[in-house]
Computed example of a mutant assay.
Amino acid sequence: MFLLGFFIFSCGEESVPKPKGMLRLEYPKAVYKETENDCPFSFLQNQDAAINVRKDCGMTLQYPKMNASIFITYKPVQDNLDILLRDAQKLTYEHVAKADNIQEQPFVNPEDKVYGMFYQVTGNAASASQFYLTDSISHFVTGSLYFNTKPNYDSVLPAAKYLEEDIRKIMETMSWE
């Protein structure tokens, strides 16, 4: 009886482990529009980003679908360019404790007199990307990308790469008034 029951109930589908799945996040192709503000600079922004402009020309580009923001600050240059550059670099390198690597990429656009640096931060740092731009005479802009969540590099990487392209577009299209 025991053997007969064993053979009857043991026949069935063989269980096979499921293959590991990878999360695939796809974002819409970015469409850019000119920023609308009364500040001494302008750039193209992703139309999916909501922009909040403050009186001091600081801005926040919010990406609600990605739970992220790009914070932009503006400072006029008044014989303090060295201090502004040092502060921007210091802000970036404060992430060294958590970052695996910080890659610097200089930016030069002599036609529009826009010069700066893009920092790509890898690892579980609070900010995934940072940048600064200046004309070396009158204007200085810094920007930082932050996610509204605990830093986990692997989880935010697809969104960080997408937003990195938006930051590069901001840098490439920056113009001074």
Rank of each mutant, 00 (worst) to 15 (best):
M1T: 14
F2H: 05
L3C: 06
L4C: 08
F7L: 10
I8C: 02
I8F: 09
F9N: 03
S10D: 12
E14P: 00
S15Q: 13
V16Q: 05
P17C: 03
K18H: 14
P19Q: 11
P19W: 05
K20M: 03
L23W: 12
L23A: 13
L23K: 10
R24L: 13
P28E: 15
K29M: 12
V31H: 09
T35V: 10
N37R: 01
N37W: 03
D38R: 09
C39Y: 09
S42W: 03
L44C: 04
N46I: 08
Q47G: 10
Q47F: 13
D48K: 01
A50E: 15
A50H: 14
A50G: 14
I51D: 06
N52C: 00
R54S: 15
D56I: 02
L61Y: 15
Q62Y: 08
N67A: 09
N67H: 09
S69Y: 04
I72K: 10
I72A: 10
K75R: 11
K75E: 15
V77F: 11
D82R: 00
L84H: 04
L84P: 06
R86P: 05
A88F: 01
K90P: 04
L91I: 12
T92Q: 12
Y93A: 11
Y93S: 13
H95M: 02
A97K: 07
K98R: 13
I102H: 08
Q105R: 00
Q105T: 11
Y115I: 03
G116V: 07
G123C: 06
N124M: 06
N124Q: 08
S127D: 10
A128L: 00
Q130L: 11
Y132K: 02
Y132P: 05
L133V: 14
T134Q: 13
S136K: 09
H139A: 12
F140Y: 09
T142Y: 06
T142K: 05
S144E: 11
Y146F: 10
N148V: 03
K150Y: 12
K150F: 09
K150Q: 11
P151T: 14
Y153K: 02
Y153R: 02
V156F: 02
L157K: 10
Y162N: 08
Y162R: 05
L163Q: 13
E164S: 03
R168C: 08
K169S: 08
I170K: 04
E172N: 11
E172L: 03
T173A: 02
S175V: 07
